[in-house]
């Protein structure tokens, strides 16, 4: 299991909102931090954010669905984000994605039943020199080959 806070407990969310409320563009940092704490951004959280900021739910939902970094569904404890940006793609990133999916037995965007890993194909991570590149939470892995997948997974 992961160590995300349950959405039944809105106290951390209210603290996050209080910290940023009033600053211009405050919805972004609130959503980012909320996702870090809760792991995802379901309607209960978005509704609270909308109410506290005095904006409509559709406005918050618009932001959440615009940026791929936000998720509406629970993700695993470790989020495997494999870059499919141009540089990584031409260096064979699709094979990396396929291998990780096979090793973890999930589809792209899917999460393992034990809620440990989620595999996502991402846009450019900004480290094209390391292509193909991926991140697992905050850890960056570069110059990947498909055969590196089992060892990387074993670290978590």
């Amino acid at each position: 299991m992961d160590d995300f806070v349950s959405i039944d407990n809105l106290t951390p969310l209210k603290e996050i909102i209080a910290k940023h409320k009033g600053a211009p563009g405050c919805a972004m940092p609130i959503l980012q931090e909320a996702q870090e704490v809760y792991g995802y951004l379901p309607i209960e959280l978005q509704k609270t954010i909308a109410e506290e900021l005095g904006v409509s739910l559709s406005e918050i939902f618009g932001i959440v669905t615009f940026y791929t970094q936000f998720t509406l569904v629970r993700k695993g404890k470790y989020r495997v984000g494999i870059c499919l940006g141009t540089a990584c793609y031409v260096r064979g990133a699709q094979n990396i994605v396929d291998r990780f999916c096979r090793e973890l037995n999930v589809e792209v965007g899917g999460t393992t039943p034990d809620m440990k890993f989620t595999v996502d194909a991402t846009r450019c991570l900004g480290a094209c020199g390391l292509a193909p590149v991926m991140m697992i939470n905050e850890d960056v892995y570069g110059a990947l080959t498909p055969d590196m997948a089992p060892d990387i997974i074993a670290k978590y």
């Binding site: 309607i43 409509s56 739910l57 559709s58 406005e59 939902f61 618009g62 669905t65 615009f66 509406l72």
Partner: peptide, 25 residues
């Protein structure tokens, strides 16, 4: 809906070709 009626029932959701003007969720 947002500015004249003060509601915001409809909003832009998703992006690119998936973009749809719809209520949240």
């Amino acid at each position: 809906c947002k500015d004249v009626q003060g509601l915001g029932a409809l909003g832009a959701t998703q992006r690119g070709f998936s973009k749809e003007i719809a209520p949240a969720f």
